[in-house]
Amino acid sequence: MGGELVTLFLAGDVMLGRGVDQILPHPGDPGLAEAYVTDARTYVELAEAANGAVPRRAAFSWPWGEALDLLDAAAPDARILNLETSVTRSDDAWPDKGVHYRMHPANLPALAAARPDVCVLANNHVLDYGRRGLAETLGSLAAAGLRTAGAGRDLAEARRPAVLPLPGGRRLLVFSLGMASSGIPSSWAATAERSGIDFLYEASDAAAADVAGRVRRAKRSGDLAVVSIHWGSNWGHTVPRDQIRFAHALVDGGADLVHGHSSHHPRPSEVYRGRLVLYGCGDLIDDYEGIGGHERYRDDLRLLYLVSLEPDTGRLDHARLVPLQTHRMRLRHASREDSDWLHGVLTRSSREFGTRITRDPRGDLTVHPGTGSRLPPVGVHP
């Protein structure tokens, strides 16, 4: 059965807590249990020192800026983002953790402004304010009518994929899992008796086989499956071989797209057996503007990922990557010069995968199906 392409909007980390929460209409308690910054408003002041005044009690749409019109014009069939914050009034800051993110539940319209269809939650900030905070997060999102995946009141709920209807009677399944390599404490793992996230210690062959098995059991004929993974370090363009093996095994096992995130900047992409693997989408919204130390990675530059798949096969038709920049804690179009810079970085870092990325006159980037990965098959990686 044929049909129109299925287009998905995919975002990396959407961090509406901490400093971003402080500029929204209902800021929560600004107190932080961090070693160096004890007031979330400090992050707003850093952004202002870098680029100018940021409004307080800003409209809920403010952090998204020009991204909202871009999304409306693209009209994707589904919108999937990594919500990397707790949504709670809890003060139970997780002990011995350096950074804590929370947004006030009354600020959830700032998330709803982007009309996400699925918020994946298996990341290293969703339990920043304890299991009481997680319970409030899950309840607040459910009350707002927002689907989630990757966290739950027990392991079965954390592993349950979000299911979205697609045109033509098809379904989109979204699985969410997080790995220790992204800084997730192992104690956040959900169990049969304990709330938490779908957690993996490592990107092992056994873990990949288990996840792929769950994908196969859940898929029906005509379904498409996305596996969203929070993994890896914050900085750097090199993709570890175990992550490549893991992603390949998921595709071999039935995943149609691998949606990786955790890095604060975009990482390479790969087209493996016709399926797109995004090893790191980078941050989309955060409060890092004005924080120094990693300027060479240009984490002020962000990408909207609009991925179009063949409905019958799940194979990539093309992926449009729209460059944006955060400025005064709001997203705006990136300059042509900055788009060129991103194109060069992604082309070089994706070269070993054989990925073909072009740039159009507007500055948007396109990932093409190409000839496939240049890497050896999964079983013989060094």
Rank of each mutant, 00 (worst) to 15 (best):
F175E: 08
S140Q: 14
L111I: 01
R153Y: 08
V163W: 04
P165K: 05
T137N: 13
G152S: 08
E193A: 15
W188Q: 03
A144W: 08
D91Y: 02
A122C: 02
S176Q: 04
L68Y: 03
P95L: 11
A73M: 09
S140T: 15
P161N: 00
D198R: 08
L155V: 05
M103R: 00
G133R: 06
V99N: 02
E193C: 09
F175G: 02
D92Q: 14
N107L: 14
R194Q: 15
V120L: 01
N82M: 06
E157L: 00
A135R: 15
L108Q: 11
L81S: 07
A142F: 04
M179T: 13
I80W: 05
A113P: 05
A74R: 12
Y129C: 02
L172D: 04
F199P: 02
I197K: 02
L155S: 08
G145R: 03
F175S: 09
L71H: 12
A93E: 08
A180P: 08
L70P: 00
R102W: 00
G168M: 12
C119S: 09
G139L: 10
S176V: 05
L141P: 05
R153E: 13
A180V: 01
D198S: 15
H100G: 03
A67C: 13
D69T: 09
A190E: 05
R160Y: 09
A143E: 15
L173K: 04
A75L: 10
G65N: 13
S182V: 03
R171E: 03
L141W: 09
V174W: 07
A122F: 11
L108Y: 09
V126Y: 01
W62T: 01
A162G: 11
L111N: 13
Y101D: 03
G150L: 00
L166D: 12
L121M: 04
L172P: 11
Y101E: 12
A189S: 13
A114R: 08
L141Q: 04
R79A: 09
D92G: 06
V174P: 09
A58I: 12
H125R: 14
D69I: 00
A75Y: 06
L138W: 03
V118H: 01
L155T: 02
A190K: 12
R170Y: 08
R147M: 06
W64L: 04
A122Q: 10
A143Y: 09
A58G: 10
L200C: 15
R79C: 06
S187Y: 02
G169P: 11
Y129R: 08
R79N: 06
H125T: 11
P76Y: 14
G169F: 05
A110H: 14
M179L: 15
D92F: 09
T191C: 09
A78I: 12
G169Y: 07
E84L: 06
A192H: 14
